[in-house]
C-alpha cells in the first residue's frame, strides 16, 4: 500500500486538497488501497462529519444520513415497512460484518468488482485510462449487457443503489460548487470513452445524505440471482414496486442490477407496463422491450434470459401480493 496522510475531517472543504479521498466505512476503499488500485495521498475520514441518523422529511419521506451503516438502514422499521425493496436489497448484499461498517454514501461510491479493474497489474481503462480492456475477449461472464462501451463493460456492484434508483431517491451532496441534489438515477454515469469516472461527482464533493420520497407504492421487492446462496455479488438483480387495480398495472418502478455500468432504471419496460394487463405475458413482453437494446458478449448472453425471467417472476409475485397502495 502506498503511504498517505490521514486526517479526520473537520469540514466539507477538507476533501478539496489534491490527491485527497474520503474515507467512510472503508470496506471497499481500504481493500482497493491494499491492491494498489486506489492510492490516495490524503485520506480524509468523514465518519465524524456526516450524519448517521435517519429522519422524517416533511410530506412523508425519509432522509438517510450518508454515514448510516447498511445494517442499521436495513433494520430500520420505517424502511422495512415503507420501502421493503431497500431493506431487502441491503440484506441481499455482503455479509453481516461488512454491512456493520459500510455506509450509505460509501455503498453508492463502491467500485466495480471486474477482475481486471481489481488487478493493478492488468490493463484496464477504468484504473489506468488508455491501457485497453482485456474483459472483452477475456473474463466477462459477469459484465454488462446494457450501457457498456468499447472502453469498458464493468458492472456497478451495489444492491442498495438499485433499490434507491427504483425508489426515485435523491442524493444530497456538498462540494466546491455548494450543495447539490442529484437524482439517484443520475449519480452514476455510463462509461463512454471516460470509464475512469464512475459518477458525476466533482473532486471534493461529498455525499451528505440520501432522500427517499414519500411512499407511493409499498408493494415492492428485491430479488437477486447469484452464484451461491449468500455472500456473493449479483449476476443479475431486480428491484420493483407495483400497484395493480382491476387486473391492470397502475404504477410500476423497475430497476436492474449487475447488468450495466450503473443501476439500470428499466424505463422502456415501465412504459410498456403502465395500463397493461398484470399478467406474466405482459411482464415478459416488457422485459423483452427493455432487453432489445442489450449487447451480449461470448459468455454473458445468459443474462438476457436471466433478466427476462427474473423480472417476470418478481412482478408476478408483487401482483399476487395485491399490488395495492
Amino acid at each position: 500500500m502506498k503511504t498517505f496522510t490521514y486526517r479526520s475531517a473537520t469540514g466539507f472543504a477538507d476533501g478539496l486538497e489534491p490527491g485527497a479521498v474520503f474515507l467512510a466505512g472503508g470496506t471497499n476503499l481500504v481493500d482497493l488501497m491494499k491492491l494498489g488500485v486506489a492510492a490516495p495521498d490524503v485520506l480524509v475520514d468523514v465518519n465524524r462529519l456526516v450524519a448517521d441518523e435517519i429522519s422524517e422529511l416533511p410530506g412523508g419521506g425519509l432522509r438517510i444520513g450518508a454515514g448510516v451503516r447498511n445494517s442499521d438502514l436495513a433494520a430500520d422499521p420505517r424502511v422495512r415497512t415503507r420501502y421493503p425493496v431497500l431493506s431487502q436489497a441491503l440484506l441481499a448484499g455482503a455479509s453481516g460484518q461488512l454491512r456493520n461498517m459500510a455506509t450509505t454514501g460509501g455503498n453508492l461510491l463502491q467500485r466495480t468488482r471486474c477482475r481486471y479493474f481489481m488487478d493493478a497489474t492488468k490493463p484496464c481503462n477504468k484504473h489506468a485510462p488508455g491501457t485497453g480492456c482485456p474483459a472483452r475477449d477475456g473474463d466477462h461472464r459477469n459484465l454488462a449487457i446494457l450501457g457498456g462501451s468499447d472502453a469498458c463493460i464493468a458492472t456497478h456492484p451495489s444492491d442498495m443503489a438499485v433499490a434507491l434508483v427504483a425508489l426515485d431517491a435523491v442524493v444530497n451532496t456538498s462540494g466546491p460548487a455548494g450543495e447539490r441534489r442529484i437524482p439517484a438515477e443520475e449519480l452514476h454515469r455510463l462509461p463512454g470513452d471516460a470509464p475512469e469516472r464512475d459518477t458525476v461527482l466533482e473532486h471534493g464533493e461529498l455525499i451528505t445524505s440520501v432522500d427517499l420520497p414519500a411512499v407511493e407504492v409499498t408493494n415492492s421487492a428485491y430479488r437477486k440471482a447469484r452464484d451461491r446462496a449468500s455472500y456473493a455479488f449479483a449476476v443479475g438483480s431486480v428491484a420493483a414496486a407495483l400497484t395493480v387495480a382491476g387486473g391492470t398495472v397502475g404504477d410500476v418502478r423497475l430497476a436492474w442490477g449487475a447488468v450495466a455500468p450503473k443501476p439500470w432504471r428499466a424505463r422502456i419496460a415501465e412504459e410498456r407496463l403502465r395500463g397493461a394487463p398484470a399478467t406474466r405475458e405482459s411482464f415478459l413482453a416488457a422485459a423483452d422491450a427493455e432487453l432489445a437494446g442489450a449487447r451480449a458478449l461470448r459468455d454473458n448472453a445468459y443474462k438476457i434470459a436471466l433478466m427476462r425471467n427474473l423480472t417476470a417472476s418478481v412482478l408476478e409475485r408483487l401482483a399476487a401480493a395485491g399490488g395495492t397502495r
Binding site: 479526520s8 472503508g26 481500504v30 491494499k34 465518519n47 460484518q97 461488512l98 456493520n100 461498517m101
Partner: peptide
C-alpha cells in the same frame, strides 16, 4: 484472505462484528 472475504479476522468494534483486516487502526 486480508480482503474482507473470509471472516477469519472478525472482531467486535463497539460491540458490533466487523472485519478487522479492512479497518485502519488510525481511524
Amino acid at each position: 484472505c486480508d480482503h474482507g472475504q473470509c471472516g477469519a479476522c472478525t472482531v467486535l468494534l463497539d460491540g458490533r462484528r466487523v472485519n478487522s483486516c479492512l479497518l485502519l487502526a488510525v481511524a
